[in-house]
């Protein structure tokens, strides 16, 4: 366990990767959005912005990067794959939780200040407003984790099976998606599917995302166990 903490500290030796860049993206996305709102004349309607997602997409890249850059090095540092995995994903979980809490707080401020005084909506999750605070925070957290794990898993697949593995994975995903869509169309399931999506609650979406994260997490670990530096 001690060594897993050391892995996390190793990931933090360069402060930018896990802390600096996310902070910069969060600050810049807010500043830019705010500037745009100031410049564009106000109308009465609420103005939505997706800029808060920017950092979430960075986490996809971070997932790729934290594996590709540091896994071979961690092997030279005599760290087991398991310890590397625990230390790295554990560190990310802490970062993601912090950002989720921050977003929740910012969402509350946003509501209290009437959309930063400009009737904007950047952090507040309108569709989940009725859910308890914990669910709102968890939802953000799980989405970030899902993107990170996606990046991490793809990087692991690449590390283990190189370009061939990547190609096979993309083909499988494409075949599965097309196959399911064809099946749904052929069986006339679309209305039911639409109804199913409409019936989802913030909690159930969180649950599905958690399941997705768990599958990717286990998949990444199993793939990493046999990866070579």
């Amino acid at each position: 366990m001690n060594r897993a903490v050391s892995v996390a500290r190793m990931q933090l030796i360069n402060k930018w990767t896990f802390l600096g860049i996310p902070a910069l993206i969060i600050a810049a996305s807010f500043a830019l959005t705010y500037a745009i709102w100031l410049m564009v004349p106000n109308n009465v309607e609420t103005r939505y912005s997706g800029a808060s997602q920017a950092v979430v997409w960075y986490f996809l890249a971070l997932g790729i990067q934290s594996l590709t850059y540091t896994f071979p090095f961690s092997q030279a540092m005599s760290v087991s794959r398991r310890t590397f995995y625990i230390g790295t994903t554990g560190l990310f979980a802490v970062v993601a939780l912090a950002v989720s809490l921050l977003y929740f707080v910012l969402g509350r401020i946003e509501v209290a200040t009437n959309g930063w005084g400009l009737n904007g909506q950047l952090y507040f999750l309108g569709w989940a407003a009725d859910s308890p605070a914990a669910v709102q925070i968890m939802f953000n957290f799980l989405v970030m984790l899902a993107l990170y794990m996606t990046g991490f898993w793809f990087a692991t697949v690449y590390k283990r099976w190189r370009a061939t593995g990547m190609l096979v994975v993309w083909i499988l995903i494409a075949v599965a998606l097309v196959g399911l869509m064809a099946l749904a169309g052929w069986q006339g399931w679309w209305p039911q599917i639409g109804a199913w999506f409409a019936a989802q609650t913030p909690l159930s979406v969180s649950g599905w995302t958690a399941l997705f994260c768990a599958v990717l997490g286990v998949g990444s670990y199993l793939t990493l166990r046999r990866a070579t530096p």
Binding site: I13, N14, W16, T17, Y69, T70, P72, F73, A76, P229
Partner: peptide, 10 residues
């Protein structure tokens, strides 16, 4: 390793 890889930004 002889061709040891290091984190790129290190």
């Amino acid at each position: 390793r002889e061709s040891q890889k290091y984190p790129e930004d290190f």
